[in-house]
Design a protein around this nucleic acid. Structure first.
Lengths: 172, 172
DNA sequence: AGCGTGTGGTTCAAACTAGAATGAAGTGCT
DNA sequence: AGCACTTCATTCTAGTTTGAACCACACGCT
C-alpha cells in the first residue's frame, strides 16, 4: 500500500459533501423526533420497519438488519420501546431461540402520530429543493451504492483478496 | 399538520437507500480505521481538517464545525488525541478564551500513515463502481444539499415560523 | 444418538455522543 | 465606565453505541 490512488479534488468534494449531508441530516432528524415525538431516530426506524412487516412482527435479527443497527443495539432499543409499551416481545414457535418483536396498538398509533412531521422534514431537507434531473442522478447513484454495500456485507474483506471489482453489473 | 405530502414509492426508496448507504459506509470506515490505525473516524476527521489548515492549527469552534461534531464532542476527541500525542492545545493570543488545536509532528505522521488505506476504501466503496453519469448526478445533488443544509443551520427553526418554502429557487 | 459447528439473542464493558449548565471573557450601546 | 448580551470552551450527566463474550439451541454429519 505504498501510494494509493488519491482522490481528485472533485472526488474529495463529493465525498465530503456526502459526509456533511449525512451528518447534518441525521442531527436534524434526531432533534426533531426527540422534540416532537420523544423518540430517537433509531427507535423511529424500528417502528417503521415493524409497521411495514406483515402482522407488525419481525425476528430480531431481521429487524436489526432492516433498521441498520447492530444486534446488541437492537436489543437495547427494543427494550426501551417495550418499556414505553410500543413493542412487545414474544418467542418464536418454530425456533426456541428466536424472539419476535411485535408492534403494539400503541406503537402503531405512536408511529402514525410521529410520521407526518418526520416525513415533512425529510421532504423539506432532502427531497424538495432538488431539481428533477439531480434527483434522478442521486436516485441512480444511491441505488447502485446501496446494492453494492448490501452484497459487500457478506463478502466483506474478500475484496482484499483480489476481486473487488464486480464490474460485471455495471457494464450491463 | 393533518395530512402531509407523503413520499412516493420512488422517493421513499431513495431516502432509504441514502440511510442505508450512509450507515453501512460509516460502519465500514469506522471498523477499518480502528483496525488499521487504532483511531475512530471522528478522530481521523479531526486530523484531516487540522492537516489541511494553514500551520496545522484551528480554533476549536472552527474545527468542530469542519469535523462535523458538536463542541463538547470535539473537546472530548481533542483530549483523546492530545493524550495520544497527535494534537496539542495552545491558547489563542488575540482572544484569551480561545483555544487552538495544533497538529503535532507525530499527528501529521500518523495521518500520513492512516490515509492511504482509508482513501483506498473510500474509493472502493463510494467512488469507483459508479459510472461517470451517476457520479456526476450524485455530485450535483450532494452539492446542492450540502449548501442548503449549511445555510439551514443558521436559520434552522425559522422555517417553523411561517416560510419553510424556499420555493423561489425551485421554480427558477 | 452423539458430536462439532453455526446461529439467535442477550449481557457486559468501554467508548462515544449531544445538550444543558457553567464560567470567563469578548462586544456593543448609552 | 457600566451594563446587557453573545461567544468560547469545558464540564457534567444521561443516554446510546458497539464488539466481544456468552449461553442455549439448531443443524449436519457419521
Amino acid at each position: 500500500m505504498g501510494e494509493p490512488k488519491w482522490l481528485t479534488e472533485r472526488e474529495l468534494r463529493v465525498w465530503e459533501d456526502f459526509l456533511a449531508v449525512s451528518a447534518k441530516l441525521d442531527r436534524r432528524l434526531e432533534q426533531q423526533l426527540k422534540d416532537e415525538a420523544g423518540m430517537s431516530h433509531a427507535q423511529y426506524e424500528v417502528l417503521v420497519r415493524l409497521g411495514r412487516a406483515p402482522g407488525g412482527e419481525l425476528r430480531m435479527t431481521e429487524l436489526a438488519d432492516a433498521a441498520l443497527t447492530s444486534k446488541s443495539g437492537l436489543t437495547y432499543q427494543v427494550t426501551q420501546l417495550e418499556k414505553a409499551g410500543l413493542v412487545r416481545r414474544r418467542s418464536c414457535e418454530t425456533d426456541v431461540r428466536g424472539v419476535i418483536a411485535s408492534l403494539t396498538d400503541e406503537g402503531r398509533e405512536k408511529l402514525r402520530e410521529a410520521a407526518p412531521a418526520h416525513v415533512t422534514l425529510v421532504r423539506e431537507l432532502f427531497i424538495d429543493g432538488l431539481p428533477a434531473t439531480q434527483f434522478a442522478g442521486l436516485a441512480a447513484a444511491l441505488s447502485i451504492l446501496s446494492a453494492r454495500l448490501r452484497h459487500e456485507a457478506d463478502a466483506g474483506p474478500a475484496a482484499a483478496s483480489g476481486s473487488g471489482q464486480m464490474a460485471d453489473q455495471l457494464e450491463s
